[in-house]
Amino acid sequence: MLENSAFAAVGLTLKLALLTSILLILLVTPLAWKLANWQHKLKPVFMSVLALPLVLPPTVLGFYLLVAFSPQNPVGQGWQWLTGHQLAFSFEGLVVGSFIYSLPFALQPLYSGFTQLDKRYVEVAHSLGFSKIETFFRIILPLCKAPFIVAFGLSFAHTIGEFGVVLMIGGNIPGETQVLSIALYEHVEALEYESAHALSLGLLLFSFLLLTLLYRFNGKGGHGWSSMSR
């Protein structure tokens, strides 16, 4: 029923979501920690900039990214100079776009997790002779396990559901930028409803399963991800 291009789209989508989520966890963790321990009157401005992808229509975000990625723009120019090919309509461009698009979904759980972590645990760890790195891996990471899993799960799921941004900056190149949602759109345009049904149902079930797992985990861990306080 599904041809090879569909499997390519599934593989590409999973690869994009996994890579984006890993990058988000790696780069957003220090940012969230800094923000959770930062007091400044400009903090609301900073926080709202980081939350913008939540409320902006994805096409707006995609449009600005497209402009930035163009070879006339310093960003696009710099990328071309570094790698030899352009950033727009490439897989790397999709990763950058997804990173920005899903950033709030990684940032929010981590930020609230870190804010609600009693800082005295960290103080005790320091007084017991732990270095900062050691404190992070032995104390903070295990204590904030739930926010980390939620941040990873949500950014993964959100990246899989991405459509508007990909449409603007990725185009529709099979094996390079044709992710599931785009492939689905194409099937509908070509009136291939059977394939569209298969893809839609697959995405629906997958998203449902992922969310159920996240909720189940939170129920067990005792930390709700919407209200991480106890």
């Binding site: 009693d118 005295r120 645990y121 005790v124 104390i139 295990p142 204590l143 396990k145």
Partner: peptide, 8 residues
């Protein structure tokens, strides 16, 4: 508050 690490 004893601040024992609750994950162990």
């Amino acid at each position: 508050q004893p601040m024992l690490f609750p994950h162990v």
